[in-house]
Amino acid sequence: MSGSEFVPLSLTPMLIGLFAAVACALPGNYLVLRRQALIGDAISHVVLPGIVVAFLLTGMVATWPMMLGAAGAAVLAVALIEGVRRLGRIEPGAAMGVVFTSMFAAGVLLLEQSDTSSVHLDVEHALYGNLESLIWLDATGWASVIDPEALAGLPPELMRMAVTLVGVGLFIALFWRALKISTFDEGFARTLGIRTGVLGLGLVIVAAVAAVAAFDAVGSIIVIAMFICPPAAARLMTDRLERQIGWSVVFAALAAVLGYVLAGYGPLWLGGQDAVSAAGMIATVAGLILALAARFGPCRKRAGAPAV
């Protein structure tokens, strides 16, 4: 395929998918190790009511209000889950189930009630995004990558996702030691004076920010899949956190690129005509990577006591 076709049509969606995948996989490592993997699931469900409320308040589909609304909904959901868990003395899984399904239902209801026919906002879009449409029309070929005029026409999602990725990376780099200690031994971390509660909340907020930014571009399926599948697969490859994070980045990137290519060109190779959902395909490829790691990964077995 020539550059004049690839650069405008496939380069930017692929990069956005890649950035989104890595930005979600990085905090996902800690969520998986802390057994909070389903927080990602909960966040991705409650993003919908957040976005709808933001739309109802501002009356337009603008990026920043929606990001704020979604992040607010994520924080509210975490607070509600914690509140229900403590007030009702309910196990965390069930508390999570109560909160996120209700908030999601409220989001769907609000969406139906409000007049969103004029804007592009519906449940399907929220679920699987539209990665394919984030094309770079100003590009004519590889030369455009260094052409400032064409660069100005880049889809804004690309910059946003790149900034999010850098932010997530910075958070993990800055709090590396504290995160590592508090993830593996919370009691010890507290004796060292690390404020584990604040740090845990910070991690959830960073995850929410990554989820919201990714959600905007690629839909919630990729968000859940990337929070969990690459870190889980990486967990089966090594016993060291540094290497686990490295593997998870590799897996996330692989899933994003391979998934996008398979979704866009796979049907053509099989004789079909239309591309299939890139978001769904990226999730599927991530699942296949996890399946391979679960079957052949060097550290796939549980060491020590069996799970209860």
């Binding site: 990729i222 299939v276 699942g287």
Partner: peptide, 30 residues
């Protein structure tokens, strides 16, 4: 058979099956 905790396994199964389902839905649309 792996060291993954149940919550990670739930999330993995959920997202991958759902993603694959979405792929099939787009196939059906065509």
């Amino acid at each position: 058979n792996t060291r993954l905790a149940e919550d990670a396994a739930i999330g993995a199964v959920l997202s991958v099956f759902f993603g694959f389902g979405i792929v099939l839905l787009t196939v059906i649309q065509t």
